[in-house]
Nucleic acid binder design. Structure first.
Lengths: 210, 210, 210, 210
DNA sequence: AATGAATGAGCCTTCATTCAT
DNA sequence: CATGAATGAAGGCTCATTCAT
């Protein structure tokens, strides 16, 4: 006698349901392509419930952006912050590898969030908001790079943009269909690939004044 | 005081107007976000004119994709194909530099086209077509890389994605507000920056079997 | 002072409202001439409500056809089937009279439905469906005639068409402005008139092989 | 060097071209379903030419109605007026037969005009105009009937409506697909059929005061 | 709190109509 | 004159949003 859908749930739980459904639908259909009907259906609730717990479509999208951006930042911060986990050396290259691995891990395990953040929202009224999220990540990367390579954070910014862009491109490749299967976790594979390409160059930049 | 509205124009001219406007609006709003009204307004013509010269929204989008894809491919092919222009050596690094410069030139001068091609959500019925255009460019990059570094084109694909992503990231930085002014053309600056970061790594990959 | 607009109604009720309005508008304007706006306005609901309860314009038209066809067929079948109601003899002429009276009754009391069914242009994709509805009624008439006059149903078809056309013409005359007032129900008057004109001829056909 | 389409033609000729095309298209697609583009294409002229020679769509439709109505009236008048053509007796039944034959001849040889007049135009703003045309025919029939059967024209009107309706119904049957092939001209077949059904009844009415 | 029902606004598309050549 | 090109005005349909239960 207690139909799941109509059971009163704690507000935060309902909100999570709605956000999860929204991210799923937004990632598949895009901001304009997604309909509130579809989101409600995916969440298994009625449309007014979506409004009650997620607000307007724009607010809902913004909430998705915020949540996924924070999730990504947290994941990276945590991973980078964790000192050498005893798995190997703790030199600059290893730290770069771990940061990249954290990024790739976050992105490949939350593919929909990533899609919404970086592939669906780059247009229209949300371009600014997405840009802010993206810049936060780039900024963090620039700080890491400045610490490792020396030089100011400002000077490291273009390199950080390059690095983040490269990571995004590689992620796109991985999320595409045709890539070799591996036993290793994808994040490790991708991080090693990217490290191999960029580390020598970055290493050389250490000597130069940026 | 020349009313452009009711002015009769040659069909090709009008079609170009419409396509230009469409690319602009699509790049800003996305396929779903763009309205035919907006495109008509941007083109300075009436909505029926958009239909007369650009066809259905889907056809119009497809035409934009086709035109910009060809434009970018042509620009890159031409620039890369031009042999050493006497400005310096013609080793692998120099060829990479020129290819990157061509890419940056094409992308920075046709930003909107690139956005439509590479940054738009590839959802729904156009996923395939957009993807095909994207992949054509990355494929070209992969071919160049394979030629330079040895190894198969398939093996070069992730590196190509990485490279294109890195270039994109750097372009974003450049098109952002805060970057130092230079006398040099942006494409040269950006190409040198990216070359500095990735060339050492790529160079090292030459020795390894990819 | 009871705003009917925002009032929540049972779906069947709303659907009936919408169908009624649709039949009215279709009968006045034709399939192409009727606009969903007009139907919504006539029904006193919003356009989305029309779509919610009546579906697409084509579906709505089909639903109108189906409903009116059934209504007319039922009315005629019932009236004809009712055996001699004690009002007089039950010979062939009397049965013809009763059938005609049933037809006139159905047609004069559901004029719009009849118009949609029988007078609308049967163009385009609905030609078949409209025609089917029309033919069902004429077919029924042909069956009755065949039973009364002998001969096959096929042979009776032209006579049935003639009869139905004659009845239509007489109905038009009655619904026009200038006709004498009577105490009798119109259906009786019209049926007697038509019987007087056609019965002698039909009676004579009984002897002949059709 | 003189392309037919662009050759300057006498205005009446062009007008005829346009009217013919219009009737064809209207009869196939209906008033609302027909597009001026389609009419222009069918006529083999440009759209402005249609406007120049046929006027507005409504005017064009009205012109079609007028022309076909007149054609039908003329045909009937002529046929009825022609005294017994020596092919047989000239009693009242023969005169009825000839009038009906004239009607069926006009209708079956100008099927499109008939369709436009009686099957496409019965709705919307042209209902009145069509009604007028129809009434003219019915009036003529009533006059003939009054002359043959005795009684006033007014009294003959319902019978005239009946007769015209019957003729229309039979025409519909004939214009449908499935009817037996004959060597005789259709008009003769149909006229004989209808005469057989209605003449006995009409004959009997002669004795009664209508 | 949760929802079925309702709607205002907007979008894609086409059509009747008219300039300008 | 004849026409290609252009447009204002709907029309069918859907969507984000909100009542009323």
């Amino acid at each position: 006698m207690t139909p799941t859908a109509r059971r009163r749930l704690a507000p935060e739980v309902r909100r999570r349901q709605v956000l999860d459904a929204a991210i799923a639908v937004f990632s598949e259909e895009g901001l304009h392509g997604a309909s509130m009907d579809a989101i409600a259906a995916r969440a298994g609730v009625s449309k007014p419930s979506v409004y009650a717990h997620g607000g307007t479509k724009d607010e809902l999208f913004a909430a998705c952006l915020a949540r996924e951006a924070e999730r990504l930042m947290t994941a990276m911060t945590t991973a980078v912050g964790s000192a050498g986990d005893g798995e190997g050396p703790d030199d600059a290259e290893a730290r770069l590898f771990r940061a990249l691995r954290a990024f790739f891990h976050a992105v490949t395990t939350h593919r929909q969030g990533w899609t919404v953040l970086y592939r669906q929202a780059s247009t229209g009224e949300f371009a600014g908001r997405v840009d802010a999220a993206r810049r936060a990540i780039v900024r963090r990367a620039a700080e890491l790079l400045a610490a490792e390579l020396g030089g100011s954070v400002e000077a490291a910014e273009p390199v950080a943009h390059t690095l983040v862009g490269a990571a995004e491109g590689l992620t796109d490749w991985w999320l595409g269909t045709e890539h070799p299967a591996t036993d290793e976790p994808p994040a490790d594979v991708l991080a090693r690939m990217l490290t191999a390409v960029v580390w020598p160059g970055l290493d050389r930049l250490r000597a130069l004044p940026m």
